[in-house]
Design a protein around this nucleic acid. Structure first.
Lengths: 245, 245
DNA sequence: CGAACTTTTGACAAGCATCAACACGTGTGG
DNA sequence: CCACACGTGTTGATGCTTGTCAAAAGTTCG
């Protein structure tokens, strides 16, 4: 049975086994689909969300605005990601969520999601694990922004994107669509857009990547991963390790 | 009933209501207590944890080592915190956990914790929420390291500590014990120890704090919070907002 | 074709890192 | 009890990475 919720279910079941009954219950969630333009807000800091939001297509990002007015992007999301477990379970949003590109989201009452999570423990566990993986990515980003230089930070970001898109089945080969402006890359890496521009040029002249406005091609994966100090372990790919209950 | 696990239970129930039966089940967890010296490792990146670890006394911290050898501390923990839900649910540790000071930890088989979480949904929810609050703190740290200057970063760290210690009942008044060396503060804020030293001096001469080797006193809370761009919302204090199932 | 973004380039400034000592306190062993 | 080593804090001089300011060139879209 193919539903618009399938991309999300697919991601949930990537790390945890779900029974047929779990799947059916998930797909039976009430939801509405909304098409959003790039830049539209899904949630603002301080909101008290009532809906839980899953990304069906397009890209989204989370960010915080700090006192001096500058912005820090704290994560980027692709189709299949749940966007708002964090905010809707915690009651009040501590950050903003916004569409990076145009795309579609599925909205489900947060209450229904919570009930499902506890009625079907396997689903609850899967959702919990997704939030823990998000946490692992946050930790890696802290290290990225705190302890790597500009060249490494950007290389790391490009590597992370490549791996995540590929494991979500959203890219093949060594190219992918990166719908971020250099300003947004700057806000994700804690740099200025000018410096991002120069650093990207550096990566290009080193033969590690080619990129035009919206597409990145990794010309030398090993080299880029080395520059970016990248190892995919923190993304906890596939294998469920000690997850068996 | 007072148990050595009480500090942890107290923290779990701070944001979620637990029934008497939930509490009893939690306190019935099998556990062993271990006293650890400052600096001892609780978990290393790559480990496959079988035990789940709760901090009973003392301080601990999580960190990652990056390619150039430098270290990034990604969080600091105080008595009552669960240290290893992240690592033990994900199967393989993606970061290190280490004692900052001497202290005691309670070790419980991860399997027993997982079973409890799903047998007693309220406990599961409470644990999930704790991991989500950890995630919120991670996001704030990304912003801290990515978009604030040295003075703000350190002021922010000091404010966060003050609020967390106080809400855990571990400090009173405006002083608290900060058992971190300047090198560790540097690793938490993405700076060098030298710069931390100079920045702390700056905060002192501004009359915002006084500090000696192991104790920090906040002399001007409003001023320090302003410099640190600090607002406690991301710690999701107390109130359970939309948590009712 | 023009308006609004985005990317690119250049010159310059600044915050923070690096290197190198020195001072201080604490614990240890002779 | 002193000498010494060691970890930590402090200071100074210098340099580099990155930020800031300003403006031009390219791109997208109505």
């Amino acid at each position: 049975m193919e539903s618009v919720l399938s991309p999300i279910l697919r991601k949930l079941s990537r790390r945890t086994a779900l029974t047929q009954s779990d799947r059916a219950a998930f797909l039976a969630l009430p939801f509405t689909v909304k098409r959003l333009n790039g830049g539209s807000h899904i949630m603002r800091e301080g909101d008290e969300p009532v809906d839980c939001c899953g990304l069906l297509s397009g890209y989204a990002y989370r960010h915080k605005i700090v006192g001096n007015g500058s912005r820090q992007i704290v994560s980027i999301h692709i189709a299949g990601d749940l966007l708002d477990l964090q905010n809707s379970l915690l009651g009040v949003a501590d950050h903003n969520v916004q569409m990076l590109t145009a795309g579609e989201v599925a909205l489900t009452p947060a209450r229904a999601v919570r009930e499902l999570a506890f009625a079907h423990p396997a689903i609850g566990r899967a959702m919990w694990i997704e939030t823990l993986v998000d946490g692992s990515i946050f930790r890696e980003w802290i290290a990225n922004v705190g302890r790597r230089d500009a060249r490494s930070r950007i290389a790391h970001l490009l590597c992370e994107f490549a791996v995540r898109l590929r494991s979500a089945g959203l890219s093949e080969g060594s190219s992918y669509e990166l719908p971020m402006t250099q300003e947004q890359i700057a806000d994700a890496t804690g740099l200025t857009p000018i410096h991002v521009n120069r650093t990207l040029q550096g990566l290009r002249v080193s033969g590690l990547i080619t990129s035009n406005r919206r597409t990145v091609t990794i010309e030398d994966w090993a080299g880029l991963a080395k520059v970016g100090d990248f190892s995919a372990a923190y993304l906890h790919p596939e294998s469920a390790g000690g997850l068996a209950l």
